[in-house]
Design a protein around this nucleic acid. Structure first.
Lengths: 215, 215
DNA sequence: ATCGATATGTTGTCATCGTCAACATAAGGC
DNA sequence: GCCTTATGTTGACGATGACAACATATCGAT
């Protein structure tokens, strides 16, 4: 059986379509894992199946990742980097300021819905425990987009000067994260539409920005 | 080896400490599963280990639950019932009204932190998919406590009459759920304390109740 | 060019796990 | 006291993650 070598990011040395060395297996494994998680969920992911899909043996993976958790962490890292870029583009693309804040909030939930496999692995909790410190860095970088957002708004006087942006930021993050998770888990009952709940939520968050939180 | 029969809720017929029939295995399995998830996480839960801990063979479980997912769903159901009662007690114990709202919100996050194994199974997403319709009912009953909360507040004029309580309710739910998940996953960075973020969050939610959301 | 070091992929094997089938034992009604 | 049913056990199987030993390709130094 010829190997189904379909490189997602082909290297320069792509001499033959059927060869012993894959070329960019490390990356292909992540992409295939994402595809399979998207299809059947994280708990159904099997290393053997990932290998089979790539036309590679079941243990080829171990030359690139220490174990299954390491592969999932790679998925998580890719997700956080993609996430950060998505949030930044939304913020910057909307001209920053208050419109940028809204765009970021809506982009947050949209990302979770459009990349459910990434998002679930990123925030799966139990499964992936950030063994690689770079994962935490990538996650922090994504969160930082929101903080930068708030810092600018505070500079423009749209957020009270005394406001603690760490708390405000975590509060906002928790809110959009909650909406994303509930929507992803199919927990929005009946008449509540995800898109509308997202807009509703972002509108409420925006409305609360000017309110000082004297404690 | 004598069987370690320690019934969490002993039935009336507890004749001998060491016997062939356990007496209340269905319940004991759930309790032990919760204990083990608390210790090592959901993904490390093993049916064989649960049986061993209860001094029972590895397949005894199948007389009470169809499979592993069914046992986890039982954990989930117990969690939702306990959750509902906890939220209701907080609300009612605080005299309802606005103080009751705050108490409910804080009790929400506290429940997640005090019963992480239950909460994670309840909202694990991928793993447990509510095959038993009663699970969804139990979950809805817990959510209903929040809705009842809002209905009363609206009746007292603390929430604008035209406000859509389904959206407001889901928005609030998402927020506290988000705080609970981030705290549970250890994603609150450095100086942000869970308890204080919870109070901060509830205060912001309360502050927003009076604000009409004209869309 | 070639040769050896290293990276990459494969096959064989093992322990563990969830689950089913067949069997064993207790509980309870007639 | 017996028979039905509920409950628990042992044996087995296929699937899975992982390790070890082996195979093959790549690449730099000479």
């Amino acid at each position: 059986m010829p190997r189904a070598v379909s490189l997602s990011r082909p290297t320069r040395s792509r001499k033959r379509a059927d060869r012993y060395h894959h070329g960019d297996l490390a990356n292909a494994l992540v992409q295939e894992a994402v595809r399979m998680i998207h299809r059947d969920g994280v708990s159904a992911l099997t290393l053997r199946a990932v290998g089979a899909r790539l036309g590679v043996s079941r243990t080829a993976l171990y030359r690139h990742y220490a174990d299954k958790a390491a592969l999932l962490e790679a998925v998580s890292r890719e997700g956080f980097r993609l996430f950060r870029q998505t949030l930044y583009d939304a913020w910057d693309g909307a001209g920053r300021g208050m419109a940028g804040f809204e765009a970021t909030g809506e982009a947050y939930v949209r990302f979770a819905l459009e990349h459910p496999s990434h998002y679930r692995v990123m925030f799966g909790g139990d499964a992936v425990g950030h063994r690689d410190p770079r994962t935490a860095e990538d996650a922090a970088a994504a969160f930082q987009v929101l903080i930068d957002n708030l810092v600018e708004l505070q500079g423009e006087g749209r957020i009270p000067p005394g406001e603690d942006l760490a708390y405000l930021g975590h509060y906002i993050w928790a809110t959009v994260h909650g909406v994303a998770m509930l929507a992803l888990d199919g927990r929005l009952s009946g008449r509540v539409e995800t898109d509308e709940l997202t807009r509703y939520t972002v509108a409420r968050l925006r409305g609360g920005l000017a309110t000082p939180m004297a404690d």
